[in-house]
Amino acid sequence: MSELAGPPVPGLAKLWTHDPVTAGPYRLVGRLGAGGQGVVYLGEDDAASASGTMSAAPRRSCSPASAPSPPAG
């Protein structure tokens, strides 16, 4: 995990092996949390003066048996 330019962030955990390392213009530096709607990452821009968070929705597989039926018509 890379270090942030500013003060430490409570609850910041290391990125997992399969996590992305960038999101748009941000370099992801750690995980802030995860839940049913995805993972929240802490990112830092190239100037290291601004940080932002990104949430990535979990990937969901859809098998033919669980796919919704097409509308009747």
Rank of each mutant, 00 (worst) to 15 (best):
A13L: 12
G6P: 05
T53V: 14
D46A: 15
L42H: 01
V40R: 02
L4Q: 04
V29T: 03
L28R: 04
P8S: 05
V9L: 09
R31P: 06
L28V: 06
A34E: 07
T53E: 05
S63F: 10
L42G: 02
S51E: 02
A56L: 15
G73D: 02
H18D: 15
K14N: 08
Y41Q: 03
M54C: 13
A5Y: 04
S63D: 08
S55T: 15
P25S: 07
S2D: 00
A65C: 09
L42A: 09
T22R: 15
P8K: 00
P71Q: 05
K14A: 14
A67T: 06
S51Y: 06
P70M: 06
G52R: 11
D45V: 14
G35T: 10
G52E: 12
S49A: 09
V40K: 00
G6T: 00
G24C: 08
G52C: 13
L42R: 04
P7T: 05
S2M: 02
A23F: 11
A47L: 12
S69Q: 15
P58E: 00
H18V: 03
T22M: 09
G24N: 10
P71W: 04
S66F: 05
S2N: 06
G38C: 01
Y26F: 13
C62N: 13
A72S: 11
S2H: 08
A50K: 14
S63P: 09
A48G: 10
P25L: 01
Q37R: 11
A56C: 12
C62M: 14
S69L: 15
G33W: 02
V39S: 01
